[in-house]
Design a protein around this nucleic acid. Structure first.
Length: 206
DNA sequence: ATATCGATGCCCT
DNA sequence: GGGCATCGATATG
């Protein structure tokens, strides 16, 4: 069947796709809640991907957020419907992927690290390293590994080339300070899979 | 293991 | 013109 061929199969047991209403409910959560819930979720993009092990929440009333000073051309996707991508260029060089969420405009979750499970060969080629721990351990690195660029800004996350599946097994998460910020540094809106060796940086004590 | 620094381009004031 | 939700190389313990 044509439809089946376009859907990548997760390699780990227990994965499940979301119905339309589950998807809508999932992404209507406030950013910190979704950021925590995304840990352990599988993210695929055009045949490559893995398990989300690190996220950060940003929202409208958050001085560190791109949305803090209102809508602009760059952050327009953050003010659009939830369940879509917000992709922006970081430091002029890298792309970073967010998932737009919330019951009001200006909320998103930055995807910071994956545990790679699918498409290892193409990710190694794109990243220029064979070290599996260096493929997706950072927001810029995972976009390079998956081939995500600015053309995906505003695209829905429940349609190809994106594919998202929540795990059925509960996972242990930890929260801490966000990385690389100069503002709102105390807000503990970074979430990780406890004990993961695929993080962009180890979780520091609060 | 952690620290520092330069690259790089676009957004926004 | 200033600042930046990063990365990789380099230096050092």
């Amino acid at each position: 069947m044509l439809l089946m061929q376009s859907v990548p199969l997760p390699s780990h047991a227990g994965a499940t796709t979301m119905s339309e209403t589950e998807f809508a409910r999932f992404f209507s959560q406030p950013a910190p809640a979704l950021a925590a819930d995304l840990i352990g979720t599988t993210l695929m993009f055009d045949g490559a991907g893995g398990i989300i092990v690190e996220t950060e929440a940003y929202d409208r009333d958050d001085p560190a957020s791109h949305a803090a000073r209102g809508q602009t051309r760059r952050n327009a996707s953050m003010f659009g419907p939830p369940g879509r991508a917000y992709v922006y260029r970081s430091y002029g060089i890298h792309w970073c992927l967010n998932m737009v969420c919330g019951d009001r405009a200006g909320s998103a979750v930055l995807i910071r690290a994956l545990q790679p499970t699918e498409g290892l060969d193409v990710m190694r080629e794109r990243r220029g390293t064979s070290d599996i721990r260096l493929l997706c351990n950072g927001p810029g690195r995972l976009c390079q590994a998956l081939g995500i660029t600015g053309t995906l800004d505003g695209k829905p996350l429940d349609a190809p080339p994106f594919w998202i599946s929540r795990g059925t097994e509960p996972v242990e998460t930890a929260a801490g300070r966000r990385i690389g910020l100069t503002r709102a540094v105390e807000t503990p809106w970074r979430f990780v899979l406890a004990g993961s060796r695929f993080l962009s940086r180890p979780m520091a004590a609060l």
